[in-house]
Design a protein around this nucleic acid. Structure first.
Lengths: 149, 149
DNA sequence: CAATAAGTGGGGATTAGTGGGAAAAAAGGA
DNA sequence: TCCTTTTTTCCCACTAATCCCCACTTATTG
C-alpha cells in the first residue's frame, strides 16, 4: 500500500472516491472498513485484515471484559465493502457518524492500511496532539539517525 | 456470522429489523435471545447457542453459587424467537427493559453472535469505557504489528 | 493541444426496510 | 360457556436506500 495524503469529498449519495494511487496497490475491489482508534475510519485490504482480526480473535472469550471492549470497538464494526467501477466506496452510516464525516475528507495511506478523517476533525486532532508528536519524535531521536557516509 | 454495526429503530409494535447483512449469515429464521453481559441483549443462532449453553451447564453444579449466578443471568432468560418474513424480531418485554431499549437501537455483529443495545446506553457505555479500551489497545501494541518485510 | 486517465454526477432498476390493515389467537369478564 | 377486548401474527403495499451503469468534466501526460 502506498502512502499519501489526499483530500476528497463525499458526494450527494455519500460516496467517497479512493485515490487511484491508493487503489492501484490493492488487488480486487473489496476492502474491510472499521472504526479506527482516534476519530477516524480504517480501511484494510482483505489480507491485512484477516491477519489483524485473527490476532484479535485468538485470545478471546466473550466472558472477559477486555475481549468485549476490543470486539465491540474494532471487530464488530468491520464490514466488507466494495469499490464501484470508478473506485468509490459507500461508508456505512454508523461509521460516518463516528468519524464525524461531513463532506471534505482526508485520506491517509498508511502503508498497510488507509485512514479516513473528516477534514476538520483531522485539523482538531493535530491541534491537540502536536505537542505529543514532538515528544514522540524526541524519543525517536536516539534510535533513528542518518548514518554518516 | 458477519460483523457490522447498524442502527435500527423499534417500530410502534415493538419490532426490530435485523439487517440483511446479519440475516444472510444465519440459516433458518430462529434465534435464541437472552441477557448479555453489560446492558445489552445477546442473540445467538441455534447452533452457537447449544454449544455455549452446554458449556455453561456441563461445567457446573447447582450447588455452587457461581453456577447459579451464571445460570440465572444468562441461561434462564434465554428464549427462542422467530424472525418474520421481512426479517424483524419481537423482543420480549423483560429483555427490552433490561437493555433499556426505547427506540433507536445499535445492532452489533460479533462473529458468533449479535448484540442489541439501546443507542443512548451504548453511547454511555463508551463514555465510561473508552479509557479502558485505549489501555487494552495500548497493550495489544506489542502483539499486533505489521511484520517488516 | 490532443489524447488518455482520473474523478464526479446522476438516472433508473432493484432490493431492503417500514408501516399498517386484517385475520387469528389469547385473555378477560359476565 | 360465550362474547368482548386485546394482543399477536401474517401479509401486503409503500418508501427509502443501494446498486449498476453510463456520460460528462477535470486533470495529467506526451
Amino acid at each position: 500500500m502506498l502512502t499519501g495524503e489526499f483530500k476528497y469529498s463525499l458526494d450527494e449519495k455519500g460516496r467517497l472516491n479512493i485515490p487511484q494511487r491508493v487503489r492501484q496497490s490493492i488487488t480486487g475491489n473489496i476492502m474491510i472498513i472499521t472504526r479506527g482508534i482516534d476519530k477516524c475510519i480504517w480501511l484494510f485490504p482483505p489480507g491485512e485484515w484477516s491477519s489483524i482480526s485473527k490476532n484479535l480473535i485468538d485470545s478471546s472469550s466473550m466472558f472477559l471484559e477486555k475481549t468485549r471492549l476490543i470486539q465491540r470497538r474494532i471487530l464488530a464494526p468491520a464490514q466488507e465493502i466494495e469499490m464501484d467501477k470508478s473506485g468509490r466506496i459507500s461508508i456505512p452510516q454508523t461509521l460516518r457518524e463516528y468519524a464525524g464525516l461531513k463532506k471534505d475528507c482526508i485520506i491517509l495511506g498508511m502503508l498497510k492500511y488507509v485512514e479516513i478523517w473528516d477534514e476538520e476533525m483531522y485539523a482538531g486532532y493535530w491541534d491537540e496532539n502536536e505537542t505529543k508528536f514532538q515528544d514522540a519524535a524526541e524519543k525517536l531521536g536516539d534510535k533513528i539517525t542518518f548514518k554518516a557516509e
